[in-house]
Design a protein around this nucleic acid. Structure first.
Lengths: 189, 189
DNA sequence: TCAGACTTCCTACAGTCTTTAGGATTTCAC
DNA sequence: GTGAAATCCTAAAGACTGTAGGAAGTCTGA
């Protein structure tokens, strides 16, 4: 019997691709086994469990997102940087909905600490260096910016902005402008 | 054999309670059958499918949230109203994490249109009547406010604000102040 | 080259959940 | 009370997870 030539990375990557096609919650070890034309039990040599598979896909997505973010931020500052990072998240969610969903998976603290999640926090903070904020206001602002990115993308992906007038792209640009203005005038009263 | 006295509402309510205890994704028809000490097949008289159960729990949560929001908004305006509605979402998520998760479930368009989701959009729009905004800026602002509420609560629930200095409550208050200032100075440049 | 040692993949099986079919029992309305 | 409807059941099939233990490739070193 010829071997399929599997390994952890290939399995996880296929899982990520499958997630983008059919949804993150539809990614099962069984489905991946079918994809590789291999028996289910075989995949347990490459992945510890279903939960382990989910976690690895999440880590892959966080990593990809952090790389894209870092690339987008290079050489930019101020509103330019703000928009660039926001667009990275939004575009990634549209192009890779399954991976984006995976990236929201709640990780246990140790895993999270070792993940690219840390880089994400640093990137948002880096943006704020273009504005004039000091602690603890900077942290409040980091949280606000993170909330807007996360919330807007989730709502848009969930279809929340579908059935009404100004289209989502327009609102997105306006939201970025508003956020930029807010940061420039921080601290607010 | 004595009957358990089940009906749709009781089953869905028990599902919502179970969701708060063990997580929305752990709510299964099997688990509910165990809870009512009834065979699994019996529940299919009250619920069409697992998906139907999830949807009904989501609708329940959306409804409860809309009622709480409406009550909180009564007699308030401006920043008062903004904070009140934001706190409704945030407090609900903390007190009923499973129900809150259910409320994020993506509904098919017809179900969504008939749900309390519509009231939620109206409430956010009602808040903006306390500020001086006209279309299409008002819609952009509605989307921004929704994004912040949704994003902040999700990140906080996901543990995103745990391991660093200013505590989340402090940031939340600051975020509400910032949002209020932003709306007062809208349109921004 | 070839004998371990290791890795990869398999069969077999047990446990859980979903869903349907069809039958029995309880309850309600007339 | 009797017939209809609602409630609950047994039975069974199909899907997914996970474990145990075995066979067949693959690699390494003498």
């Amino acid at each position: 019997m010829a071997r399929a030539g599997l390994n952890s990375e290939r399995v996880v990557l296929a899982g990520a691709e499958l997630a983008d096609e059919v949804g993150f919650d539809q990614v099962t070890i069984s489905a991946l086994a079918r994809h590789f034309d291999v028996k289910v039990a075989s995949l347990y040599s490459h992945v510890q469990s279903s939960h382990d598979l989910s976690t690895r896909i999440a880590l892959l997505a966080l990593d990809e997102l952090a790389d894209l973010g870092a690339a987008a931020l290079a050489g930019r500052s101020g509103k330019d940087a703000l928009s660039a990072l926001g667009n990275v998240y939004r575009d990634y969610a549209r192009q890779h909905p399954g991976r984006y969903a995976a990236a929201q998976l709640r990780l246990d603290p140790e895993t999270a600490a070792a993940s690219a999640g840390v880089r994400h926090a640093q990137m948002t903070r880096a943006i704020l260096r273009g504005y004039d904020l000091t602690e603890p206001e900077q942290t409040h602002a980091v949280r606000l910016v993170g909330s807007v990115f996360r919330g807007y993308v989730d709502l848009e992906m969930g279809g929340g902005f579908d059935h009404s007038a100004p289209d989502s792209q327009e609102s997105w640009l306006r939201v970025l402008e508003a956020l930029d203005a807010l940061l420039r005038n921080w601290p607010v009263t």
